[in-house]
Design a protein around this nucleic acid. Sequence first.
DNA 1: TTGTAAGCGTTATCAT
DNA 2: ATGATAACGCTTACAA
Lengths: 369, 369
Amino acid sequence: MVGLRTLQPSRCLPFNPDAAYGAITLMTTPKNDKNTRTTGRPTLNEVARRAGVSPITASRALRGIPSVAEALAQRVREAARELGYVVNPAARALASARSQTVAVVVPSLGNQLFVETLEAIHAVMRPKGLEVLIGNSHYSRDEDEDLIRNYLAYQPRGLLLTGFERTESARRMLEASGIPCVYMMDLDSGAGLHCVGFSQLRAGAAAAEHLIARGRRRMAFVGAQLDQRTLLRGEGFRRALQQAGLYDPSLELLTPQPSSVGLGGELFGQLLAAHPQLDGIFFGNDDLAHGALLEAMRRGVRIPEQVAVLGFNDLPASAFMVPRLSSIHTPREAIGRRAAEMLLALMAGQSVAEPVQDMGFELRVREST
Amino acid sequence: MVGLRTLQPSRCLPFNPDAAYGAITLMTTPKNDKNTRTTGRPTLNEVARRAGVSPITASRALRGIPSVAEALAQRVREAARELGYVVNPAARALASARSQTVAVVVPSLGNQLFVETLEAIHAVMRPKGLEVLIGNSHYSRDEDEDLIRNYLAYQPRGLLLTGFERTESARRMLEASGIPCVYMMDLDSGAGLHCVGFSQLRAGAAAAEHLIARGRRRMAFVGAQLDQRTLLRGEGFRRALQQAGLYDPSLELLTPQPSSVGLGGELFGQLLAAHPQLDGIFFGNDDLAHGALLEAMRRGVRIPEQVAVLGFNDLPASAFMVPRLSSIHTPREAIGRRAAEMLLALMAGQSVAEPVQDMGFELRVREST
DNA sequence: TTGTAAGCGTTATCAT
DNA sequence: ATGATAACGCTTACAA
């Protein structure tokens, strides 16, 4: 079930030009006459000297620590500006044993969903001076683990992870690190964890209920990627159908392939060929539904008359499909923002009153159902 | 013309929980009995001790420096594994004045194009042990400058930038840093720079030529975002039309709004309303073309009979549109890979034989033209 | 081939 | 409120 391990950052040798390309030794100018720079960049020492204060005062002034007299702080800031001083993050991280970094792991960048989530996270973190590291796990637990191991080495202030699907080893590393962590997107199995999302299970059920309310009787679920969230949506869908006495196990089409428009069209074709009596389909992802709509048009299958098509996530293009795609809109922007804010609180040592935040979802009924 | 400056990372105060949330002073356990860890993480010293060698030998062994006896190296690696040692990147960067990091700036993550480019870059860099920092400039020169300033502070080994559109100040910083840099996507104005891409100008011309060859006479160009590359494509298109005596300046529709499916449909509608005699449209981006195709279907405009529609970039969904979208396929995967490889060479101090690499483009004719 | 010594640029700690 | 001093964990330069 688990993909091949393709990334093993922790086992990579550091990039070593000499080893890789044959020792090209460049003559470097002699350096280190005590107090001479090595990087060609002004240091805090120089700022301090120019401002006529000690380095530590300069440090404090630049960090906005209030114990510094305003007059001095002003002088320091000015000196820093004149010199074009920029703090050396490596030195800072080493000395303080903490970085100004937050790491985020998403399962895909190809899904607009996560891009929007990332944007929201950035919008919260950047103004606080926090750097956001973006990791893409490609829906692989092993890559997820590798990314976490790798990021942990950077001593990030906090972690934002997608879902709960994780190797045991990754879980242990997270636990052992003691670094605050917020889980995004799902809620259903986040016992004891800080998470912001919505119930994928209930979203799946909502999909079924909508289709049933539309008078559909033979409904299929189509899922790709098979990540836990997709599976959970399928599970919710199934349970609701069972409850209505409409569940047909042969109408579940699951594939581990990555979700895409092309795949959606293909699966739609297969499904229809195998089950001509089908009258409704719930797709685990909007791009699949887009592909189905397009393929339906090509085949002259009338949507929604013959088959109702319901998508998930409500990607930006969905409202413009023909027919306009009904979909379950997920609040990724809000999730990103709230998750980031929650992490900020945890990073500040505060306890969070509501560690599990349900941001809900919203059925957007358009023309395809 | 230049967007508002929304991100100023270099002016952000570092994240400071005490300042931000009121001084919550946690009692920390006393530390620093010489040789005691502060991070809760094994250090190189401990690995060395366990392997019975000096720290520097351990360092060399772990870095794969060949001068270390294989027996020792083995012992060190084993000790590291047993301890779960992971190098502290901050300490490494500080000591060596260089990180194991490469920074990439793309103008958007919403465009699948750049996601694919990033994937290719990752595929080259990660196996070399290089961390890839991803920056999104949102097509803003100011954000681009801020990202560059910010990343430069990290002493990255190299930089991968998109296009040549940059503030003077950013250019100066890059120059002054002396850090190797490769420019991706465009070629047309990269005099003296290392770049991997294709001629946007020629791609635009190719679009015009194709439409003309299809017998079209009244062709429009529709561009959004108005980044330099889009403009260049429009320019190439225009020149080719002029040469054929078919240029009509009123048939150019440019908007600074971000490219999207919805926008494409809207612009298509406007264009058609204003110029009913139109018989061909070249869209600067496939998502715009998708929107146009969808809108055409909605209005009953026959594509390509009434209007030929040509896209750009050939996004994955294009082949599945109705009708299937003709588009100019751009080799972003190859561009990412080659740019990364070129940067690797520069980082190793090698000079590059072909500093300007034209990866070409390919017209994919499908049903919409 | 291995080790010693000395920083890298910053911040924590403890004085003053 | 400000400063002296000693790390932080690693690598460079040089020595053996």
